[in-house]
Amino acid sequence: MMRSMLLLCFLFLHIKATATATPTATATATATAKELVVYTSRKEHLIKDIFQQYTQETGVSIKYKTGSSAALIQTIKLEGQNSPADIFMAVDAGSLWHATNENLLEKVNSGVLKINVPNHLRDTQGTWYGLSIRARTIVYNTKKVKESELSTYENLAHKNWKNRLCLRTSKKVYNQSLVAMLIYELGLVKAKEVVAGWVDNTVEIFSNDTAVLKAIASGQCDVGIVNTYYYGRLLKKDAKLPLKLFWPNQKDSYGVHINISGAGLLKNSKFKIAGLKFLEWLSSKKAQASFAQINMEYPLDFTVAQSDETARWGKFKANTHFNLTHAGKLQKEAIKLMQEVKYK
């Protein structure tokens, strides 16, 4: 008993000793980094190669931890000063906004980032920057729908589409951002009408975009709203599927809803200069090509070489009017709206 108590005391003292030893590391905020740590909700198979590419070019190795963005934000928060993380990377603007809101991200003033990342794809205060574009657009069954029938997101709420629409769950952040955009563009009342109309027209709600695409291809419904890379992936497996993308809200309207995958520098990073360099590199034309291409997403600058698939889907007008900071700000509002109209 005595011995175990002693052991416990020793263990505790050991913890204390390591605890007091760590703050010295914080003094080296400007030290050159041999290694950067990224906490990312962008998944391993979408980042591994590009991180390796950076290591080969600069000698700085990248360690990463993947997970859901809410869990990673909480981790960073709890680790506080001792957090080993330098960069937070997420696959939607809402999560990045949340990280800013939790005061975890550093305001960055970088000319390179300002040039490479268009205004609407970065935080208004400069805490995070988009690194690739994800377009959420309309997809339709070519056997059952004529292109001329389609026009806007709002139009999908029309009675014409009764029992013809398939949607992904409202619990997915991509839909929350889309509705946030509608609230911003149309106002709360009109946006609610639109979403209620969608729900009214919906045949079934799915847990993922691929399921929505398959439902449309199989004839269960005629149209849906998806992120384009899911479409690309499915068509790679079976090119004969009767599916086609449609770019809504092109004429006299705000354009296609886009979201980003992006990143920001963490306040408690020990290697801020190195971290910033890494962000700048990711936004460079060279890195852009592979960062977006690997998942058939769009590069920040449409003149950068795109993957064959995305090029084939044609050009479109994206909504550049809606700064993605608002996607985060309005997310709660959007969720509440969707809950109220019983969008599950």
């Binding site: 909480q74 709890l78 680790e79």
Partner: peptide, 16 residues
């Protein structure tokens, strides 16, 4: 998991 992380964070250590 969050509960444990919160407790460990009190110890002010480099958790991971």
């Amino acid at each position: 998991a969050i509960a444990l992380m919160s407790v460990f964070s009190l110890l002010n250590i480099n958790f991971f």
